[in-house]
Design a binder for these strands. Structure first.
Lengths: 180, 180
DNA sequence: TTGAGCATGTAAGTCGTTACATGATTTC
DNA sequence: GAAATCATGTAACGACTTACATGCTCAA
């Protein structure tokens, strides 16, 4: 499916970037729904360049240190736009190790089960608070044709997702504590 | 991490199964949070057998057709139990192509964006209805030390997750339609 | 001068998908 | 007799992770 290809092209639509900057982006804002390590990004950029979808200029910092600043080409933009407009089948529900564990939780006693749930809950609450903090920067919905609109809706989605997981965990804790 | 290993061991804790049956399970109930194809399962079972975590007996249907029915060993159960009790770090948020698309939706005009959202919404509603139907079999919460308890909580989690995604999509549609 | 961050790359290995490959049994 | 389902396996490829490998720049 070459998803990484489109993730990179999409970022380059905004403005030219180096591989290093793309990697940072993939480990901060985008990390809510996409990520990649530099070891995947550099080869992909090389490939995109060979395919004529991006080009680059070399920038020098100090005396020697080189950085390749990549720009999307006309052809690259066309391909990205085609992808962006394409209807897609809903993706398979993602694998979730914690849910797998809960699926098998009949093998656990009450204390162990609740311990696992509380531990997971705590981590998700922490995550949620980070997201909420980041959300504070938006005093209103950004213009819908701006880049910030995209940032805004996925951040909102990430918050809702976290809240939902916490609600589920709370239900699970409740079910585990009740006596039947 | 060998997650597939533990998914298989967990299933075999319930009762002995053939590779074919495991594959079916991974494409029906478990599909809400785990899945694997037979091409991954057969080699894994072979490996687990070599490691002494499972054993098998050969069953014959008709005249010739052989099936290997796998049973978890004492050692296999011990390893599974150790894994099940282990606290785990919250997993990275899963990759989500539709969210990636929405992140870049500033490049789309209103009609195109809403079209994508409506299309996705429809698929998620359909999925939700299937899940709700499956949920009807539970008139009450199953005993918490039974296998059905695990089935129940993950199904409940899948329903909540679907509802949440739909709520997010609806918000996105709302934001896209408003005028600023 | 030392450490954090900038910057790029490759290699080995694991995980997962799709396709290839074969054949038996049951049900209509 | 045909089709669906049972049953098992391998091969090739692509996606992703972890580790290896190197060297520069800037600020404290």
């Amino acid at each position: 499916m070459r998803s990484l290809k489109y993730a990179i092209l999409g970022l380059l639509c905004r403005h030219p970037m180096t591989g290093y900057e793309i990697a940072k982006e993939f480990n901060y804002e985008l990390a809510e729904f996409w990520y990649a390590n530099h070891s995947q990004i550099y080869p992909e950029l090389k490939k995109l360049n060979e395919e004529g979808l991006v080009s680059y200029d070399i920038e020098i910092s100090g005396e020697i240190l080189e950085a390749k600043r990549y720009t999307i080409t006309e052809e690259g933009y066309k391909e990205f736009d085609k992808w962006l407009n394409k209807d897609e089948k809903m993706q398979k529900t993602p694998k979730d190790i914690f849910r797998l564990r809960m699926y098998f939780s009949g093998n656990l006693d009450m204390e162990a089960r609740i311990h696992l749930l509380e531990n997971q809950r705590q981590q998700h609450v922490k995550r949620l608070n980070t997201l909420k903090k980041r959300f504070e920067q938006y005093s209103e919905v950004p213009p819908r044709n701006s880049d910030r609109f995209g940032d805004f809706v996925v951040l909102r989605g990430a918050i809702m997702r976290q809240q939902n997981i916490i609600a589920w965990i709370d239900e699970c804790i409740g079910f585990s504590k009740e006596d039947y």
